[in-house]
Amino acid sequence: MAELVRLGERASRPALLAVQDLKVSYGAIAALKGVSLSLGQGEVVALIGANGAGKTSTLRAVSGMLKPKAGTITLKGERIDSQPSHALVAKGLAHAPEGRGIFPNLTVQENLDLGAYLRNDKAGIAQDLEKSFTLFPRLKERQHMPAGTLSGGEQQMLAIARALMSRPSLLLLDEPSLGLAPQVTQTIFRILRDVNAGGMSILLVEQNAHLALDLAHWAYVLETGEVVMEGTGQALLGSPEIRKAYLGE
């Protein structure tokens, strides 16, 4: 195992998510070879790394889409590994998957309604719907359109808004900038900052290391299924190694 480099000081927060020695394999190929990470209440934690480093696998294991081969995942002190995805939503997890995973045949409104599938408080849902529309005014304009007709950026907004509809305590985001124009990406990250400012904890997987580190309180750098470096977003942004490997300098 590579030596773990740690940069900067992490602010102390009550623990929300803890991943210990997580291993995941696709057949004979090991995708994660023992990843450990943690996330505190209200924190934005970013996972950065090259393609195939294991970022998405980590996220999928946390949200129950993949069964880990070994290791533990704890949410609010409770073991959640090997529980099905839909059960984890009830425990406060929301995952906006890679590729957004919106339902193109359903309207924007219906997509958002499905985000609140497990909730029964009509008034609360209506309130949150209004909140999403304030956060993403574009979605309000397209409320009754099939989600398939939205632009890529709008679909990403819908995916995030839909994830928030379950009132999660932890939001998992996979590549929110993928395939989007820089301007749209900027908008989305600005909104994510606002969402976090409202108290939402976020575990973010992002290829655009610059944006991710700028937003994250704490970040982990993954290489071939292992964490090789961690630190505050600012500290990593300042690291020459990171600048060279991930920021293209």
């Binding site: 889409m65 099905p84 995805s85 839909h86 995952h95 998957p97 995973g101 499905l114 599938y117 379950s166």
Partner: peptide, 9 residues
């Protein structure tokens, strides 16, 4: 799979 992520059993 995505449906599961939204809490749909």
């Amino acid at each position: 799979r995505v449906a599961g992520l939204l809490g749909i059993p």
